[in-house]
């Protein structure tokens, strides 16, 4: 009976984790950087908990030790007890396993959330951190003030890391019907991202999943459906490479050597998108 149960569980994990037909599997190399991506999570609803459970289940096979949060980490009231209901409980198993969450601020987040220890923001609106050969640049897209922009330029310029990943809340490329691309923000920061060879950008805000064809050499993702969801909100354009707006989702990303491999996983465990992004050559 026990053997049968274990076989059934293994089959479930295999079925839920195998990539979609024609998709790419995560290589799961020991030396690679592995992380998950979630956005617009903090509802405290059943769906957020479902995503949290799915992430914990996935971790058995893809042992990520870091999660990047794309903003709107908390919706509604943000008292200490709300952090328990909307963050610590849904991701409890991950937190217990020592997974670190690095958050960016969304429009629904209280600015004081940058002091919350669980978000590892160090009290800053914008910051960067490195994991092996990957440097993450975390921005506050609510207001791109001159100081933040100057900080970003200097941080990008100083970075000698092999991979540069940037993330923030408001997408500068999005086909979400409710919000769409923040073009003013795009004009303000895209030149910097291009100049200093950022490889990939993640953003939330639109409650969908979308992957863009490389825009001026940079691959953009929108992952704002890890708690909230707007079904049918995507109006795909010529720049859309893939999208999913029928259920909550999160992403798994592995960066090793010259390749970034990713999967977008739905709340049910089905892999709805996957692929490989090569590292940009450094000039």
């Amino acid at each position: 009976m026990r053997r049968l149960t274990a076989m059934l569980l293994g089959l479930i994990v295999f079925v839920t984790l195998r990539p979609a037909a024609g998709g790419v599997a995560l290589p799961v190399r020991p030396e690679s950087v592995k992380f998950a991506v979630i956005g617009d999570t903090g509802t405290g609803d059943k769906e957020e908990y479902d995503v949290g459970r799915q992430m914990a289940a996935v971790r058995a096979r893809f042992p990520f030790d870091l999660v990047i949060m794309l903003g709107d980490n908390m919706y509604g009231r943000q008292r200490p007890e709300d952090f328990v209901d909307k963050f610590e409980r849904p991701y409890g198993p991950l937190l217990k396993a020592g997974v670190l969450f690095y958050a960016s601020l969304g429009n629904h987040d209280d600015q004081s959330n940058r002091f919350y220890k669980g978000f590892n923001m160090g009290g800053e609106r914008y910051y960067s951190f490195a994991k092996k050969n990957v440097r993450f640049f975390v921005l506050d897209s609510n207001q791109m003030d001159p100081r933040q922009r100057a900080w970003l330029e200097e941080a990008l310029k100083q970075s000698q890391d092999e991979w540069k990943v940037c993330y923030f809340h408001h997408p500068i490329y999005s086909d979400g019907g409710r919000h769409g691309s923040d073009v003013a923000l795009r004009v303000a920061i895209e030149p910097l991202l291009m100049k200093y060879s950022v490889d990939v950008v993640f953003a939330g805000h639109d409650h969908i999943y979308e992957r863009f064809k490389p825009q001026k050499g940079i691959t953009y993702f929108v992952e704002g459906s890890s708690g909230e969801l707007r079904r049918g909100d995507v109006k795909p354009s010529a720049a859309t490479a893939a999208y999913f707006d029928q259920d909550q989702a999160f992403m798994l990303v592995e960066i090793g050597g010259e390749e970034l491999t990713f999967e977008a996983v739905a709340r049910t465990g089905a892999v709805v998108d996957s692929g490989v992004i090569p590292r940009k050559p450094r000039t």
């Binding site: 897209s141 609510n142 207001q143 001159p146 933040q148 408001h170 003013a184």
Partner: peptide, 9 residues
Amino acid sequence: ILAIGPVLA
């Protein structure tokens, strides 16, 4: 008062 971004918009 506000810098470029969605809050200003």
